[in-house]
Amino acid sequence: MTFEAPKYHYEIVNDLLKGKFILRNEVHFEILTKEQDFYKAFFKESFGYELVLRKEFAYLLSKNTSEEFSKRFTVILSILCYEWNLQGRDIKDRIENGSFSVLEIQTLLENSTYSDIFRLIELKEEGIEKFLKELDQRNIIKLDNSKETFEFTKAVDLFFEFAKEIATNKLAKLNE
């Protein structure tokens, strides 16, 4: 009996265990989709994690999150949504189709009405640039070669869904 793993097995496992989103345009996404039954069972049995496979991306879901990363990500994006709306821009359209300068983002966050919340997430001396690099490594954004501008990937959909869920819950509470 020989152990035969699907092609790109190493990349799939390594990327997902690093908390990276595998995007549709990546070569191993296709294999992951094709072998989804195997990988769903593999991650569940080996690590207790749920593999979430969507049309545009795949990621691992874990109940044991250390919350800091997701908190930072949500705070930053929430502040940006608030600021872009003040500028009269269509938030979703802007996030999905826009390109952003790292400097512009930093200025927006630091001068926002919610800058006190931004300071609370303690990016410390690492600064926004390092955090954006981490988002890039995880395929949530794509920094360009100069590292001065970036675009969001489809993984940002999770933020939209999250925000909508909060709004729906809030509305339901008000209607109670």
């Binding site: 265990l17 879901l61 874990s62 997701s70 705070v75 933020f159």
Partner: peptide, 28 residues
């Protein structure tokens, strides 16, 4: 609403466990 929740946690008016969060795997 999320930003206001964070503010409430900072002010001690809400517990951090009550803070909703996006669920995905964290590599740390």
């Amino acid at each position: 609403a999320y930003l206001e929740d964070i503010r409430q946690v900072a002010l001690g008016l809400k517990k951090s466990e009550e803070l909703p969060q996006i669920a995905f795997f964290e590599n740390t």
